[in-house]
């Protein structure tokens, strides 16, 4: 079983490849018959980061504006987020500021965000340079990777880096997993909480030795 459970979000404009990133991450292959996500979809995977098993609970949100009212309700209590744009579409890049504002406002101030410039394989159609995006990432204190859900390049890396940063922050004390809405749970505690009434949660967290 896992040592930690992190709640993750995948956000960004429609058609940037969010669902494909998630699919590639979980299934290790490219889903080429993808359809619009309706509302949200859920995925989960356990990864090993610096000798800890971390279970990621990932909410893949719909990028379309019409679903915003539904998807926003999933931001609360997210520990990490993949903010995705499409390197072949400047429009999706320009929308990043809005997504970022939403995430910081609705999730939590401490949310760890990694910027993903997806469709790296379509370099010929590129509209956003690596340099420009990495500057944006720096200014906004984001991690940054260019990914390809098609080839799988940097996909696992994105999730792992984000999780590693969260772990680091926990170790340095910058993040407190026990704070409400941190989006982090201890593995054992998480399991116990799922099997017992919510009240037991606080106690089990204290019992946990990790």
């Amino acid at each position: 079983s896992a040592d930690f459970l992190f709640k993750f979000l995948v956000i960004g404009n429609a058609g940037t490849g969010k669902s494909c990133l998630l699919h590639q991450f979980i299934e290790n292959n490219f889903k080429d018959d993808s359809n619009h996500t309706i509302g949200v979809e859920f995925g989960s995977k356990i990864i090993n980061v610096v000798n800890k098993f971390v279970k990621l609970q990932i909410w893949d949100t719909a990028g379309q504006e019409r679903f915003r009212s539904v998807t926003r309700s999933y931001y609360r209590g997210a520990a990490g987020a993949l903010l995705v744009y499409d390197i072949t579409s400047r429009e999706t890049y320009n929308a990043l500021t809005n997504w970022l504002t939403d995430a910081r406002m609705l999730a939590s101030q401490n949310i760890v965000i990694i910027l993903c410039g997806n469709k790296k394989d379509l370099d010929a159609d590129r509209e956003v340079t690596f340099l420009e995006a990495s500057r944006f990432a720096q200014e906004n204190e984001l991690m940054f990777l260019e990914t390809s859900a098609l080839t799988g390049e940097n996909v696992e890396e994105a999730f792992v880096q984000c999780a590693r940063k969260i772990l680091n922050k926990i170790e340095s004390g910058e993040l407190d997993p026990e704070r409400m809405g941190s989006g982090i749970q201890y593995g054992d505690a998480a399991l116990r909480q799922l099997r017992s009434p919510r009240r037991a949660q606080a106690e089990s967290v204290q019992e946990c030795s990790c």
Binding site: S19, E27, K31, D33, N35
Partner: peptide, 25 residues
Amino acid sequence: EEDDGGFFTATHSTPVPVQSHPSGE
């Protein structure tokens, strides 16, 4: 279901066997 996906229906990040082979549409 999948195929219709391109046009009609399903897709989702179904990590169940269903999705393990993206269909050649």
